[in-house]
Design a protein around this nucleic acid. Structure first.
Lengths: 214, 214, 214, 214
DNA sequence: GATGAATGAGACTTCATTCAT
DNA sequence: GATGAATGAAGTCTCATTCAT
């Protein structure tokens, strides 16, 4: 799927698209346009008129694919975060040095989320989650809770092996991801004023967690 | 009630308040109600009607104190963050061990922001800042930029003195505050599902920064 | 009275004004301010706030002198047109050549109405009269009807004497005042774009009515 | 019903109107309703709610055709005066005796403006022009200025030919149209109280201008 | 009497949603 | 299925009027 989220409007290579294909393309275009508009304006201030215009469809078409504005929003979040959730469990299965795991973790974060449109989705969850309890709950149950569990397991194993000097870290796995959250917010609010070298910050973060003198 | 930090001008010794005092009280009530509503609904979805009702004033009264909905929002942010900004510079002046400074820093964060209504203001900045470039800029110029500078100076001094083992930390002062940011977001989104012991997390954070084995 | 309508705010020559004098001054100031605002904005769009500000009084003070906005408007018209009405009947009584009468008539129109604030009142009647049936009726009964009668009488006498060649003129006395009405409207709408020499136009008008070749 | 001069796009031979035609009909209905309401209440006091009700459409529909209340007003004026402006220049081209020209002029005024809804438009310009500088300017540039020029040219030709005895008339073409303006205002303000025979008055006016003893 | 802060009805305008084409 | 004109509930903001000071 199109990671950047730009609506793919080209017809498929075969000269005639089936009805289903065209419909799916429209749906994707609407989702991509919705992400743009919701990110820029926020859920409440975004206008479906603008979403339709950006997606190149009529306003009514949105309602052929989504029940209402909120359903569009929620499906947008689920659609784009689905793949991410699937990958979560793989991480804990592999038995590698914690440094390697953390470095992969940062890699996935930077190139699989931060540098893609998924960052906008994450930012949307942060900014709108408070107004959508169901969304927050879905996200908590499917991403946060299992994510925390995975990280905690990794940390405990690493502490046991002596790879990490901070026993307390396992109690607060949030500390591992906090810089990632901060980076997303920084990008949304302050990138205009001062650039943040996210990859560099994350590398430093790992060193600190590992207790490496630099 | 005054955990918000807003100075409630107390009534004069005589039982009857002057006109000016009542007006100022109303203004404060509107600001408090606006914080409630904006926090709960977000700026765009909040209704001034509800703000007025909550503040116990008529709709029109809001417009005696604020030019429009946006002005109310911006003044809300500035009013409640003003005192915080003033305290920023004091921190760097005092010459104490970095551990002490960080502990005080955490104390101020926890009891002066996180456990007060200012946390809602901070959350509002995070959630709405993207839609209010001027607000983001004001906040960046008056809080983030000087705040980063102060932390960086402290860290550089601490690194020189050997109190902190991570030279790279001074390049990314954001890492110091990242857990605080995360805590604010956690409170806004997930506190319902799982409590986060912010004070405990912040103490662990300090130990990690200082490279203390626990 | 103050023909230009600027509020006379100076205290009277005697050092202490009686309560009644100050009150009357305020009332006049309000009327003058109201004429300014109603002329500029129209009745519906004018704000009593602006009237009060211009008059140098508080908004509530207006209600000490006038029942409501409409009463203020109606009294404004009556107050400023009263003297004019009184003079109407004098004209017909005097037995002079029609040319002289018409010339005096023009003089009174130009220097007693067109070049004073009464022109604004007349313009207000034209622009707002349609929305104030009572005002239109009052004005018709007290100014138009008797005015028409007076002019008709003058014209009939002049026709009989052979001073005017157009018998039909007596059937349409409106033709005598039409250029005056036109001048008032021109001043209100187009004076900015092209100046109209009202006195000159009125002189030409007289010559045409009198059938003088020029 | 179509004495207003608005071209009512007739339905196609097939009994069902196309979408575009229905939309244009609605637009016309809104304009007609707006003319009614603005004439009765004045621009500021007229409510778009009433316009919508009278036009048989929903409030929001007005905004599909006009940007806002003022745009509706301005387009109303331009739409209904457009045809009039086009006819202006034809008048001067025809080389006929001045009496014939003036009689035609009066005919056009009476049956093409005074006895149609255009009279209301003219009255609106008179009553609201002061508050809409752009409207007044548009009207001055496109109607008044060229109109005056045409009339002046006609008068100068007539004076040269000895058809009109008043040389001064060419200096004040406003005198030619003044009775028409007066008639419009009379209709708006006083018709209820006393009927004015406009056609008769205009005929008398012509005789007076031509210096005919009656 | 004078003030002007407060009120709240009412106006304009927006925009999610519907539905005839 | 797709369209986009139409709808009307709901929100922001204004301002004539009131009334405690």
């Amino acid at each position: 799927m199109n990671q950047t989220g730009t609506p793919t409007r080209r017809r498929p290579s075969r000269p005639v698209a089936t009805r289903g294909q065209k419909s799916a393309e429209r749906r994707d275009a609407i989702l991509a346009a919705a992400l743009d508009e919701f990110s820029k304006q926020g859920f409440a201030a975004a206008r479906l008129d603008d979403v339709a215009k950006r997606a190149g469809v009529a306003k009514g078409t949105i309602y052929l694919h989504f029940a209402d504005k909120e359903a569009l929003f929620q499906e947008l979040i689920r659609t784009m975060l689905g793949p991410l959730v699937a990958n979560l469990h793989e991480l804990s299965a592999i038995d590698l040095p914690i440094r390697t795991v953390l470095e992969r973790f940062v890699d996935v974060f930077v190139s699989g989320l931060f540098e893609t449109r998924r960052r906008d989705v994450a930012y949307l969850i942060i900014t709108e989650g408070g107004r959508f309890p169901k969304l927050a709950e879905f996200y908590y149950r499917h991403v946060i809770e299992p994510g925390i569990a995975v990280i905690r397991a990794l940390l405990e194993r690493a502490v046991k092996r002596g790879e990490i000097p901070h026993r307390a870290l396992a109690r607060f796995p949030q500390l591992v991801v906090a810089p990632g959250v901060m980076a997303i917010i920084w990008a949304g609010l302050f990138e205009r004023f001062a650039h943040l070298d996210v990859a560099g910050m994350m590398r430093s973060h790992i060193e600190i967690l590992l207790g490496q003198r630099q």
